[in-house]
Simulated assay, not measured.
Amino acid sequence: MQTDQPGIVVVPISAIRKRMTPVQQWRSSQQTFEVGGEMELAVFHQKMIETGYTMVDKVSLQGEYSVRGGIIDVFPMTESHPLRLELFDTDIDSIRSFDIDSQRSLETKERFTLLPAKEWVLTAGDRDYLTKQVQKELKKSR
C-alpha cells in the first residue's frame, strides 16, 4: 500500500476503522542499511525506540535488537531470521541473516530496509506535543 501502486487489499472492517501512522511519517520512520553506508549509533537507537523495537542482550524474537560493540543484531517484523550488521567505526561492513540457535550466517545482503515494529510511530516531537496536551487538559480539570 505504501508504494501507491493500484491493487486490491482485503482487510477486516476493524482494520479499516483503525487509525494508522500517516504515510509520510511511516516512510520516514523506515531505516535503510547498505554495505558501505554509514550508521550513526545515536540516531539508530532513537529510531529503534520510536519505531517500537526493544533493546535486549540477545535477540530471540521479532521486534528486538541488540548492540555489542560494532555488532548490531536486529530481528525485523518482516523476516523469519534476524539480521546482523557489522560495523567498522560508523561504516557498515556487512549485513547477514543468521540462525538464532547456532548464530551461523545464512545469507548475505547488500541492502536492507527496516520497517517499524509497531503500527503507530511516535516521534519525540509527537510525544512532546501529546504530553503538553495532556498537561493542559489536566489543568482544565482541576
Results as ranks from 00 to 15, higher is better:
54 T>K: 13
27 R>N: 10
97 S>E: 10
58 K>G: 01
111 R>D: 05
100 I>H: 08
73 D>R: 02
103 Q>V: 10
56 V>L: 05
95 I>P: 03
48 M>L: 06
65 Y>L: 10
92 I>Y: 02
28 S>T: 11
57 D>Y: 09
107 E>W: 10
22 P>K: 09
30 Q>G: 08
50 E>I: 01
96 R>H: 12
24 Q>I: 12
32 T>W: 06
92 I>D: 05
60 S>P: 07
81 H>R: 10
42 A>D: 09
101 D>P: 03
52 G>D: 08
23 V>D: 09
109 K>R: 14
81 H>F: 11
81 H>E: 12
69 G>K: 06
56 V>N: 02
22 P>V: 12
107 E>L: 15
35 V>P: 00
91 D>I: 15
68 R>S: 10
82 P>G: 03
114 L>A: 02
96 R>C: 03
41 L>N: 05
55 M>N: 13
29 S>V: 03
115 L>T: 12
48 M>P: 01
109 K>N: 03
104 R>C: 04
77 M>D: 13
23 V>K: 13
94 S>I: 02
65 Y>T: 09
112 F>Y: 15
82 P>I: 14
90 T>I: 14
112 F>C: 06
43 V>C: 09
115 L>N: 13
60 S>Y: 13
102 S>G: 04
90 T>A: 09
34 E>P: 01
77 M>L: 14
37 G>D: 06
97 S>A: 12
57 D>L: 12
69 G>Q: 03
56 V>P: 06
82 P>F: 07
101 D>V: 07
72 I>P: 00
23 V>F: 10
90 T>W: 02
32 T>V: 07
27 R>K: 15
56 V>K: 05
103 Q>N: 14
67 V>R: 02
98 F>H: 05
54 T>P: 07
72 I>Y: 01
94 S>M: 03
34 E>M: 04
112 F>V: 14
90 T>H: 11
